[in-house]
């Protein structure tokens, strides 16, 4: 059922808010802006839904006592945003102009106008950047266990990383693979206690501490990894059929370079919880959040940005009367 509170702008007129991205931050913001009667356009990207589209069961999002599948959660959020009148376009933003008033956003040679913008583009997989990785991507190198795990039935795989997402990858893979070797550069995991104990209690899991991948080797497909111990500098090789990279994420901010202030790692610099260096351009979620990076915190940031958008619009909209 659709319940719309805002009138969509006519051709050539600006949207009250354009939200770039389509993860929990974006869609939560859209639920609040549409219910706040702001006309809302979501430029979702061709790969919409964000990181949760690449997960299986999500057990830490409140309200789902038995867990929920990541993609199903995102489809539900999308439906909820659209229910209140958000326009959802599955296209990538190629360029932004934050110097003009209204702001301009370019999508496939089409220009959209916006009184305010929320940047909620999230973050993407950080790769190892070692020789062989790019060439063997999809030929044994992957970053999405829920997508690819069944293809490694009875095969040997490695997971690189030590956080929650590395544990999740390992736990998905262990259902199929004959062995899962986790390679981590430190001697302890960063992951939550719950995830760690599930990994450590599984007899098919092996852990190699203090080590990193130096090279990914294979002709047509992955054959082995060259790894080295960071403490002893000793090199060794392990034979695997798959390697899953889960060493973290980097913010998706390429199109915002020189448009808003970014920090040295590329995250959007945030002021006052939701604001960027440009007045009227707000930010929410993993694209600025280096600390928490959870679905629920992203959703919370989205809500906060939406509130500030509504306040900003109220303050800056002068009523124009037709003479």
């Amino acid at each position: 059922m659709r319940e719309e509170f805002a009138v969509k702008p006519k051709e050539g007129e600006p949207w009250d808010v354009v939200i770039i991205g389509s993860g929990p931050a974006s869609l939560t913001a859209a639920i609040y802006t549409t219910r706040g009667a702001a006309s809302t356009l979501i430029l979702a990207g061709e790969k919409w839904g964000g990181q949760l589209m690449l997960t299986t069961q999500v057990d830490n999002y409140p309200g789902f006592p038995d867990g929920i599948q990541g993609p199903i959660l995102m489809m539900a959020m999308r439906k909820q945003a659209v229910r209140f009148g958000a326009e959802f376009i599955e296209k990538d933003v190629e360029e932004v102009n934050f110097l003009s008033n209204p702001f301009e956003l370019f999508v496939n040679r089409k220009k959209y106008l916006a009184k305010t913008v929320i940047i909620a583009t999230g973050a993407k997989t950080r790769w190892l950047s070692v020789p062989g990785e790019e060439r063997l991507l999809g030929r044994g190198v992957s970053s999405c266990a829920p997508c690819d795990a069944p293809l490694f039935k009875n095969k040997r795989v490695a997971v690189i990383g030590g956080g929650d997402s590395a544990m999740e990858e390992a736990l998905v893979l262990v259902k199929y693979a004959s062995s899962v070797t986790i390679i981590h550069r430190r001697n302890e995991f960063r992951a939550s206690a719950a995830m760690q104990s599930r990994v450590k209690n599984n007899p098919k899991m092996k852990i190699i501490w203090d080590s990193a991948v130096k090279e990914i080797i294979g002709e047509q497909k992955l054959e082995k990894l060259k790894i080295w111990n960071l403490k002893t500098s000793q090199e060794s090789e392990i034979e695997v059929d798959g390697v899953f990279v889960a060493i973290g994420h980097s913010p998706s901010t390429e199109i915002f370079k020189d448009k808003v202030d970014l920090d040295e790692k590329g995250y959007v610099k945030v002021f006052d919880h939701t604001k960027t260096s440009v007045e009227g351009v707000f930010v929410a979620g993993d694209v600025h959040d280096v600390n928490y990076r959870q679905a629920v915190t992203a959703a919370g940031f989205g809500c906060m940005a939406a509130f500030e958008v509504i306040r900003y619009l109220d303050k800056n909209t002068t009523v124009v009367k037709n003479s």
């Binding site: 991507l137 999809g138 044994g140 690819d148 293809l151 490694f152 992955l222 798959g242």
Partner: peptide
Amino acid sequence: SSSKYSVLSI
């Protein structure tokens, strides 16, 4: 077919 073309990611 999938192994002939080394499809290990979908």
